[in-house]
Design a protein around this nucleic acid. Structure first.
Lengths: 191, 191
DNA sequence: GGAATACTAAGACGATCGTCTTACAATCCG
DNA sequence: CGGATTGTAAGACGATCGTCTTAGTATTCC
């Protein structure tokens, strides 16, 4: 297998960054290729499934990357502390990027939930893995499985909503408000 | 002023429905005109500001329509009851529409928050009016303003996140989980 | 009636989209 | 070496995008 190149990987990572900012419809092959510095002629070679396959891979990559981050944050300490760190870091990243870099999956999920099964299921997997990470951390502190799942869903939803509002209002305030209330709920219900 | 027509209004409402489902980039003039049954030649006449103006008007219309709904739900009874009704109705609407009709603003907000000031501020206004509606209802029950604002932000964020997760997972479960937890928080903090 | 106004008909315009094609360069396997 | 595989070059392809143009029709005011 000759002529090894990292074009495919660069395309996936660049696509992930662009999808995060502008969503699926507004992210074209041309901008992915230009921004990643990869060759135009390699799209069909690396992604015979076309733009959809690129996006699926990008969402999956984003999902796994963030799952690792999340599991790391949840590994030590109370979930409430992890949530506070999460909202703080999310706010910092949003502000630093000019309110561009929010949740790497949400935009694509909302855009394509209705008519693209492959992309929709990639988004579902990402969200599911994050929720599992949270639920397992809660369950590890003595909460039964059903309650832990429910709490994890609530936690993920609140943070996702906070990222949405923060981005829309160009302010970190929603993230802080949610971080405060949510950590209170978690402390009251876990361990 | 002769030849009165409702083309403009029909365009705005159809655009609102399409933006809710597919977002800004994927919603073209052609589909708006076709689905609303309005004449192709009237776009520039009714919307000299182009597609952006149409979208701004559509988001504003959606925002006001939902604000009225929300204020109605909050008028009588505890905010916790309104939130439970909200999540229940939101879930029913999502399911009925084949997981298409979620929040009418969220998709556009995430898509365009970064590079379209007019559209971004229309989304900000919508979210702001909803949050104000919630905050006023909470404040009316004896909570001081700062705490009410914070609780309202938390409430809106959690429901928005639940709508996002429900749409992505094609399940009403996130809405029910959030409705349950959130109403508990509201009951514990209000009245 | 006549002029001004509100609206529509019907499409052309250039730009950009995702995809596909054909030819060629580089590398590894035996 | 020779052949197979992997990757890139360079662009054409038709479709669709938002916008703009020119003409003409209907309605109201004076």
């Amino acid at each position: 297998m000759p002529r090894r190149s990292d074009s495919r990987q660069r395309m996936v990572r660049t696509a992930a960054a662009l999808l995060r900012r502008q969503g699926y419809a507004a992210t074209g092959w041309r901008s992915v290729v230009a921004e990643s510095g990869t060759p135009w002629g390699s799209q069909a070679h690396h992604f015979p499934g076309g733009k959809e396959q690129l996006a699926v891979d990008a969402v999956a990559w984003s999902g796994e990357a963030f799952e690792r981050l999340l599991r790391g944050a949840l590994a030590n300490g109370h979930p409430a502390d992890a949530v506070e760190a999460w909202t703080r870091l999310g706010g910092a990243e949003l502000e630093r990027s000019g309110w561009r870099d929010g949740c790497p999956v949400a935009t694509v999920a909302l855009e394509t939930a209705h008519d693209n099964d492959a992309l929709a299921s990639a988004c579902t997997s990402a969200f599911g893995s994050w929720r599992s990470a949270i639920a397992e951390a809660i369950q590890a502190r003595g909460v039964d499985e059903a309650a832990a799942q429910s709490l994890a869903t609530f936690t993920l939803a609140a943070v996702e909503g906070a990222l949405l509002l923060a981005r829309a209002e160009r302010s970190t305030e929603p993230l802080f408000a949610v971080g405060r209330h949510l950590s209170g709920v978690l402390r009251a219900n876990v361990e």
